[in-house]
Design a protein around this nucleic acid. Sequence first.
DNA 1: ATCCTAAAACGAAATCATTTCTATTTAGGA
DNA 2: TCCTAAATAGAAATGATTTCGTTTTAGGAT
Lengths: 145, 145
Amino acid sequence: MEQGHARALKEAGMKATPKRLAILEALYAESGYASPEELWKRLRDRFDRLGLPTVYRNLEELAASGVITKVIHPNRQLYYFFCPNREHHHHFVCLSCRKVEDLPACGLSALEQEVSRSIGGKVLSHILQLNGLCGVCAAAAGGTP
Amino acid sequence: MEQGHARALKEAGMKATPKRLAILEALYAESGYASPEELWKRLRDRFDRLGLPTVYRNLEELAASGVITKVIHPNRQLYYFFCPNREHHHHFVCLSCRKVEDLPACGLSALEQEVSRSIGGKVLSHILQLNGLCGVCAAAAGGTP
DNA sequence: ATCCTAAAACGAAATCATTTCTATTTAGGA
DNA sequence: TCCTAAATAGAAATGATTTCGTTTTAGGAT
Ligand SMILES: [Mn+2]
Ligand SMILES: [Mn+2]
Ligand SMILES: [Zn+2]
Ligand SMILES: [Zn+2]
């Protein structure tokens, strides 16, 4: 997938630097969301030098250009997730194991229109996320009393 | 409305202390969301002593017991809003003037059920917020070229 | 292949919103 | 009026995130 990631970066107008690619691949390898520091710890051995600010900066840039996604977390820290799905959509997040799953197509445009009209303003963006326990975690929590 | 706020606190199982009431009333007086520090600056003259941590703590407790609402903000700082609507619902937030408006009744339970079923897990909560420009701010931005 | 330059990376240090901690005060039920 | 769990003070700590000035590099141009 290295090639594909390099292409994704080019399409986003970003240089395909080794560190940027490694950050993206590390996130791709995760089954769930990850924090900047976690990714940094996972990657720093692979480079003679890798600064934590570099990881923060790249994740932010990648999210800004839509290559990766931010997760909204109760602790208000930064978490990111790689989702290959290029359509506009939202996510279910497992609060226990960090797994992220796609929701069916976002049906909020009707709501956006209705709200724009009723308030006489402009809806510029929306946030939608479901939180809960994935199948595995729900079974582990409720299944063995 | 002082009486009503005291009652709301009692119903939430919280003591109606003067500072807590003042914080709640200050938020009630706002037309939009507010930060802990803003409320603190507005209130500290009214008391011989009022600590910023007290404001943080009270806002968090009030939000936890559902008396007030947290706003999700791009800068990831804490903002709160007082909404008298006791039904489960979500908000439109004006990114320019901080005004918050109710959205029509949340219709996400069908989605929650579908997702629970399809992933075999449990949906515990959801986040939904529309961001944009209210009527006034949209007119000011686009209306006078 | 070599140059050139804007972009990227470095990392120590700063930032600063938020939380912690321990002592003191208080609301409100008994 | 008493009692006690809850609430407050406020200085200090925290720690995730950002800033800054410098150095390095990717990748298009020559
Ligand atoms: Mn997705
Ligand atoms: Mn509301
Ligand atoms: Zn899970
Ligand atoms: Zn507005």
